[in-house]
Design a protein around this nucleic acid. Structure first.
Lengths: 192, 192
DNA sequence: GACTAGGTAGGACAATCGTCCTAGGGCCGT
DNA sequence: ACGGCCCTAGGACGATTGTCCTACCTAGTC
């Protein structure tokens, strides 16, 4: 793996664990094991690294969702897999929160020009989730359902980060899974 | 209002709008209209201001909830009032997110000793919401319901901050309000 | 063996950070 | 009029920030 990729990879992790503003050039360079001068050869400004990290998150997210689509034939199973992210990544979320939500919010507070770029990761999830709900026979409310699931994951991540309560996370996931079942029962077979 | 109170008030606002780490001594002093030296007379370290701000948030939150309890005789109405915070404070949330959740998460990323202190604000809401659900005849699941409502508000705040979508917020509030109604119908009158 | 180009190292730069110190201003009781 | 005390102003401090510059090293080509 080339130096540039190693920088992006390390910055990605540090931005998540410490926040963007709190992570300095020096700390990234030290973590990668290169000098600050070499660093400057690859990225001129901190914003350049940020955009590269966001781009990396965008493509890795798209790749993950494509894998999910390949592995699970049932759209409902795919959505459940998204819902259960808060369990899969429980340890990281307890320590650092949701990578997407926390970065987006930090950039909003900084009034940073790359905020919308970061929101793009949310958009990838939103579009993908909406696609699943369309496949499940709810074309009219697909986007609204996608937003609701997105909101669920953000809420659970924030509360999990605050309280470190694993029972809470599992309760909420179970609640969301039963909600999904009955929601789609209503949508796909309109009884009225 | 004395200088100390004005400092806390300004720091409270700036911590919310810009984040704790990003807000400097100098910027607070400038916003208050005093010199940095005078600042140091009132607060020795930045952590001292943070703790004072958290303490102010704790007491103002408690005061708000007490007012709600006084104004609304029906516990369900009180909970709805909490749910609708995401509409009441819509503009701020779109720009800066939830004050409680974003500060807690930032302190978590900084591994800051005052993180648990900040979580205390969550605890105030949690306990109050739990109390309302107990009054509504759901003693066993009161805390779980409180956590669920807390999670709702965090999720809506995060997504609202990312997308600035007011229709989404109103949809989610409506959804939560109907959920509250049917949830309590089940709890208070067990049909089985 | 000379030359070029991509990559690396280390330090300089001004600005800003949190922290701390000292001098002075304004009001008090006497 | 005077001494004492709460409050304020302004600057000094070492460290760190993002940014930038220059010298060097190594590999490959003629």
């Amino acid at each position: 793996m080339g130096t540039r990729e190693r920088i992006i990879d390390t910055a990605n992790r540090l931005f998540y664990e410490q926040g963007y503003e709190q992570t300095s050039f020096a700390s990234i360079a030290q973590a990668v094991g290169i000098s600050r001068g070499n660093f400057y050869y690859h990225f001129k400004t901190k914003d350049e690294i940020l955009d590269a990290v966001i781009e990396a998150r965008l493509s890795s997210t798209r790749e993950m969702l494509t894998t999910w689509s390949d592995e699970s034939p049932d759209p409902l199973e795919r959505v459940r897999r998204f819902v259960e992210i808060v369990i899969t990544n429980q340890r990281d979320i307890e320590n650092y929160g949701c990578p997407v939500g926390t970065l987006t919010n930090e950039l909003a507070k900084l009034d940073h020009p790359s905020r919308e770029h970061a929101v793009g990761v949310f958009d990838v999830f939103r579009t993908w989730l909406g696609g699943q709900f369309e496949l499940l026979g709810a074309p009219d409310e697909a986007d609204a359902l996608a937003m609701h699931v997105l909101s669920f994951s953000q809420g659970v991540a924030a509360v999990s980060n605050a309280f470190h309560d694993r029972d809470f996370v599992e309760r909420e996931v179970a609640r969301m899974n039963t909600w999904l079942t009955e929601q789609l029962r209503q949508s796909s077979s309109p009884t009225r």
